Structures are given as structure tokens and as C-alpha cells.
Simulated scan of single mutants.
Amino acid sequence: MLRFLKSLVKGPGVGLPGFSKGADLCLSMASHLKDIMATVILSGSVLNVGSALHYKGMTILPRGSDPEHIKMTKDGFADIVDALNNPLEEPNRRSLIPVEKAESCFLFLVANEAAKLLQAHGKKKPKIICYPETGHCIVPPYLPVCLVSFHTLVGKLVIWGGEVRVHSMAQIDAWKQLQAFFHKHLGND
């Protein structure tokens, strides 16, 4: 896949944008593959989530969760924030993506733990932009704000949080930030 992406660009490498589960896949790719020059993580995690990832004899286990900690709203939606296990405690540390191995530049839109790991391993501090009062689903601008959707792993409708107006404005800014970051690290062409 990386060869295909490189065939589409003129520069020395490619950029990867990833949202939610796609974000931890992009982090994993940047941590293990060469020629990924810039990676943008939107509402992602420094942990592998969902299912095990396998690459060249290495396995990154999925982050654990406790379904007992899922709260149900009065409208019947699942609030899963407290259901995810602490990523910095065992056995969840085995789910950490070795982001410190990456040679990519990073832009994190709401993700502080990955930045701490990078800096702990002597890497340059990545650019981090936090959007208070927004929910999980920061997608390209002018798309409807996703407050609730069906989550396959949970098997229920899950609330994603956020205040609609603030979230909409964050989507516009995040898209501008993503484009500027890729132009800076990948060239203007």
C-alpha cells in the first residue's frame, strides 16, 4: 500500500491522516514503515484498539475494556468513556504503539499521551491542538456533527459528545490545520 501511495506523489514520502481506529493504524504504520513523512492523528489513541495488530512477527494487543463500566444515558445510548482500561497500567501497556520508533512528523488533534511518549524517547515535541467542548468525531468540515452512532465493537448506539456549534467550528479549523501541516512537511505540490 505504501508503494502505491508513493507512486501518487512527487516528494520523498507520504502523509497519513487517520481518525479514531484509523488513527492508531496510521500511528502503527508511521512507527514501522519508512517514507511516511507526516502523520495527522484526529481523535486517535497511542494504543491499539479493537483487535490485535501483526507485523513482521510482532503483535500489538488490543487495549482492554470493561463492559461493566459502560453507562447508559436516559435516551438509551452507551457512554463508553469509563469502559476503557487505563493505558498506562499493565496489561494495557502491551497495547501501546511504539510511536517513538517513527521518523514522521506528527500533528495530534486531541492526543496528549502520544506526545509524552515521543518526548520521553528524545523525539521532537509534536504539534498538538486541543478543541475543548468537542466530541470524538472530528471529520472534514461541513459534514454533519456525529453525536451518536452505532459502534460495532460495543454493539450499541454510542454517544460521542461535544457541543454542536463548537464542534462544527473545530472541524473547520482542524481541516485547515491538517492541510497546512501536510503542505509544510510534504511540500506545496
Rank of each mutant, 00 (worst) to 15 (best):
L2A: 14
L2P: 00
F4G: 10
K6W: 02
K6I: 07
L8R: 13
L8K: 06
V9N: 01
K10Q: 05
K10P: 03
G11T: 12
P12T: 01
L16N: 01
G18L: 00
G22K: 06
A23R: 02
C26M: 05
S28P: 01
S28A: 09
S28R: 00
S28Q: 01
A30T: 02
A30I: 03
L33Q: 08
I36W: 00
A38H: 03
T39M: 04
V40F: 06
V40R: 07
L42W: 14
G44V: 08
V49P: 11
S51T: 07
L53D: 00
H54E: 13
L61R: 10
L61K: 12
P62Q: 09
R63I: 06
G64Y: 03
S65R: 10
P67S: 11
P67M: 14
H69D: 02
I70Y: 00
M72V: 13
K74L: 15
F77T: 07
A78F: 03
V81I: 15
V81S: 12
L84V: 13
N86D: 12
P87W: 15
P87C: 13
E89F: 14
P91C: 06
N92D: 12
R93N: 00
R94Q: 11
S95R: 01
P98H: 02
V99D: 00
V99S: 02
E100N: 09
A102P: 01
E103T: 10
C105M: 15
F106I: 01
F106D: 00
L107D: 04
V110E: 12
V110P: 08
A111T: 03
A114D: 06
A115T: 08
K116P: 02
L118Q: 04
K123F: 03
K124W: 02
K125N: 09
P126C: 11
K127N: 14
K127T: 06
I128Q: 10
I129W: 11
I129F: 14
C130T: 10
Y131K: 01
Y131N: 07
P132I: 14
E133F: 14
I138K: 06
I138S: 09
P140L: 03
V145Q: 02
V145L: 05
L147Q: 15
V148T: 14
V148G: 10
T152W: 04
V154P: 11
K156V: 07
K156M: 08
L157R: 13
V158T: 09
V164H: 15
R165W: 12
V166S: 08
H167V: 13
H167T: 15
A170W: 05
A170H: 06
Q171N: 14
Q171A: 09
Q171V: 07
I172C: 05
A174E: 06
A174V: 02
W175E: 12
L178Q: 04
L178R: 08
H185L: 03
N188M: 02
